[in-house]
Amino acid sequence: MVIDCHVHVQGNWGTPDDRMGYLLEYADRLGIDRLCVSLGTSRDHEPDMDTIRESNDMVWEALEQHDRYIGFCYLNPCYLQGSLDEIERCIADGPFTGIKLWVAMLCDQPNLDPICERAAELGAPILQHTWMKITGNLPFESTPYHVASLARRHPDVDFILGHTGGNWEMGYRIVADIPNVYCEVAGGDPELGQTEMGVALCGADRIVYGSDAPGRSFASQIAKVRGADIADDDKAKILGGNMQRVLGL
């Protein structure tokens, strides 16, 4: 089974259902079975709770229409009670499986702790966007260092290190010795060596395929795994086996 751990519903054409149908057509061409989806149309870096709920509702609609989608509930940890309530609504009482965090708050902050504790109880993995831009991060954009700090405090939660920090040559090293952090290959250029280095430093059990579609191409991102000089068994783990375990599928 091939699972893409990082897909968005974004776009402002048609209905969410139209957009999700369109994505599945392309996913089929590349043999992708399941897609973890989060984030609606809003690209507000610090969304209020109304925007958060609207975004999750858009994903919810997609989940009801297409059983190939797996929902990741978007949160802004600045609104702590709102976030905990949204976890109840979407994950405990709803169809979502994981949590998605973007750039509203640096993820090593104390607000994250109650969120992680509830995630551990529910068995929900947390996908945290990370990047390390030499051109300068956004004000509250987390790096792998922030995820490392959080993941060490919460060994019972599985964290997916979004984009492996973008600068993956550093990202892998930062989390190499933290077993509950999974490195995701999504979102950067298809630079040769990325997956090989991940397997070498973190092991094939802790690398997961994701695309960041539709902003990125499924093809350019899955090429990082298909084209890697690693064993076929390892490719199978990265393309789906590891995420199957993380998601409890």
Partner: peptide, 8 residues
């Protein structure tokens, strides 16, 4: 880059 990116 991985050449597979272009072919895929």
């Amino acid at each position: 880059f991985y050449p597979e990116a272009a072919t895929l």
